[in-house]
Design a binder for these strands. Structure first.
Length: 590
DNA sequence: TTTAGGG
DNA sequence: CCCTAAA
């Protein structure tokens, strides 16, 4: 739907792009996934028009030529690359080659930023790229697109060139493109990288790039990286979110640092931690280009890890009982959007604390990771875009969407795991973090909201095993104790699950085992304190820690005696059944 | 899954 | 509180 609107807007411009089926798809897709970004893309493409396209193509050609030159040994073509990127972006400015000013180093960052942007925008790129994946490998997706638009231009040449180039030449090209040298010998990788840089530029250009253009550039300079948004906004008017901008910046930085083929994947994970948005972006990015070997490996690993954990997690909440009722497990895609929002909330709440409750519950059975660490990751942000993207993913594809999802998942976990490696965590937490975490957290929170604050008490205790186990300590309140006593009196000691159900339905954090333990303590206290019921005030004296009214203790004792014969010693009146059973609570009751 | 116990 | 053996 949205797309349609946009189309109307820019139809005039769009035609050109529209002509190529791919371009259209891209645009529409982008739109759906994230309104903002897409718009830019559309605009950009629209603006590009034939003229621009031509210019771009020319640039590409230049690049090719330059590459060849480079092979010869001429280095100064960084700007050329940039131009290509620019052209890819949307802006016609490309010809101007503003970049000449930008140092080589910047280029990589830009490229990365572009990539990120893409990803953020949602899967738009993905889809676009996908159709032309083959092309991408050979050359740059952008080039492919353009070529489609205008066969006239010899864009295809660029692609071909990549294939033809020798490793050394590729290295040169790489150097020109990214402003740094690479030792990678993998020809495929080099080609891919180069192609990607080109491709990315196209999509990304809207935001980052624009900034670089003359006008935008100005703003950029004035406002600096942080304000990148403004620049993008201005250009497209779509981008407004700071998050996006930030994201881009960060991504750019990361990208610069990373040279590996997986730049994207690696970089992202880091970013992802910080920004959830980023994750979504990652997806897109990944989609765009074919996954690197390594990347694939990571994914598979991550998935394996995550999936298991996830499942476990989903189940666990159940244990909570009433708490979990609302859990809705959604497909990962959907979750994404929520997740982000969640992340924010969590952070605001205090991250670990809030989450913990939920998690704690879950974790009961097993050690879990720090949620806090996870929480950090979720930066906040994305809103609609995410949702849209999610939708897209779902709709669009099973094929494509899954891939990205996986990536995200893999990433998240990996990140978490590594940093938080302290914990062997098995499952849930990490997994949850990315996708389900939010969901679960939410519902849980809601229930326990009253106690939420309390939940924070969780403490991590080092275990002999080396794992950390969380101990969440929640002091028993008088009310709870009373309820417990009531429950015992009603159901009898030992019917913990029953009592839990009847009297502690609203206390998700009290499990039947907890009740049992508490009862045990009460029993002990009741007997220890006042061998003789007569002393009512005694309780207090004991440790000074006797919040529990004697009355209750007496009651406990009473019940204990009734149900079972507790320690004969203490119990003044033993039941007939008697036996000397020390704690045979159940033995005779009822 | 729920209990009972040990730690 | 956690963990586990038993049931």
């Amino acid at each position: 739907m949205e797309v349609g609107d946009f189309l109307e807007y820019e139809n005039s411009e769009m035609h050109v792009v529209a002509n190529t089926g791919q371009s259209l798809e891209c645009i529409s897709i982008e739109r759906s996934s994230s309104g903002k970004l897409r718009l830019e893309c559309k605009e950009g493409t629209a603006e590009a028009d034939l003229g621009e396209l031509n210019a771009k193509l020319q640039i590409l050609q230049k690049v090719k030529e330059e590459k060849q030159r480079i092979s010869c040994g001429s280095p100064a073509h960084s700007h050329v690359n940039i131009d290509s990127q620019c052209s890819a972006d949307k802006f016609p400015v490309i010809d101007g080659k503003v970049q000449s000013e930008t140092p080589c180093q910047e280029i990589p960052s830009i490229a990365s930023s572009l990539n990120y942007t893409h990803s953020n925008q949602s899967g738009s790129i993905d889809q676009c790229s996908r159709p032309s994946e083959g092309v991408i490998e050979s050359g740059s997706s952008a080039s492919a697109v353009y070529s489609n638009l205008k066969p006239d231009l010899s864009m295809s040449d660029g692609e071909i060139c990549l294939d033809k180039l020798s490793i050394r030449e590729l290295h040169e090209l790489f150097k020109v493109t990214f402003g740094r040298e690479t030792t990678v010998k993998d020809k495929q990788w080099l080609k891919r990288r180069i192609a990607m840089s080109l491709t990315n530029s196209c999509d990304v250009s809207a935001t980052t790039f624009i900034i670089k253009n003359n006008k935008i550039v100005r703003k950029f300079e004035e406002e600096s990286s942080g304000n990148m948004n403004a620049g993008s906004l201005i250009s497209s008017g779509n981008m407004t979110e700071e998050e996006d901008v930030n994201f881009k910046d960060s991504s750019a930085v990361n990208a610069c640092g990373i040279e590996d083929n997986q730049v994207v994947s690696e970089t992202r994970p880091e970013i992802g931690l910080e920004d959830e948005n980023y994750q979504t972006g990652q997806r897109a990015a990944k989609r765009i280009r074919r996954p690197t070997k390594r990347y694939i490996e990571e994914l598979s690993e991550n998935e394996s890890r995550e999936h298991n954990p996830r499942l476990s997690i989903s189940n666990k909440p159940m244990g909570l009982g009433h708490v979990s009722p609302t859990l809705n497990v959604r497909p990962a895609r959907n979750a994404f959007s929520e997740v982000r929002t969640y992340g924010t909330r969590l952070d605001s709440l205090g991250g670990s604390d809030v989450q913990i409750p939920c998690v704690s519950r879950v974790r009961r059975s097993r050690p879990r990771k720090d949620i806090a660490s996870l929480m950090k990751f979720h930066p906040t942000s994305m809103g609609e875009a995410e949702k849209l993207s999610n939708k897209l993913l779902e709709h669009s594809s099973d094929a494509g969407s899954e891939f990205p999802d996986k990536v995200l998942k893999s990433r998240m976990p990996s990140k978490f795991h590594q940093p938080s490696s302290s914990e062997p965590v098995k499952e849930q937490c990490p997994v949850i973090g990315p996708v389900e975490l939010r969901q679960e957290l939410r519902p849980k929170r809601a229930d326990p909201s009253s106690h939420t604050s309390d939940d924070n008490n969780i403490v991590t205790v080092p275990t002999a095993k080396g794992g950390m186990r969380r101990k969440h300590h929640r002091a028993w309140t008088l009310v709870e104790v009373i309820k417990l006593v009531e429950g015992v009196s009603r159901c009898g000691a030992g019917r913990w699950s029953e009592i839990k159900r009847l009297s502690f339905a609203s206390y998700s954090y009290r499990t039947s085992v907890d009740l049992k333990d508490k009862w045990r303590n009460l029993l002990k206290a009741s007997f220890a304190l006042t061998p003789a019921p007569a002393d009512e005030g005694i309780n207090l004296r004991k440790h000074g820690t006797a919040p529990i009214p004697e009355k209750i203790l007496l009651r406990v004792r009473e019940l204990a005696e009734m149900n079972s014969q507790v320690p004969p010693n203490y119990s003044s009146s033993q039941l007939a059944s008697g036996g000397g059973s020390v704690h045979g609570d159940r033995s005779g009751y009822l």
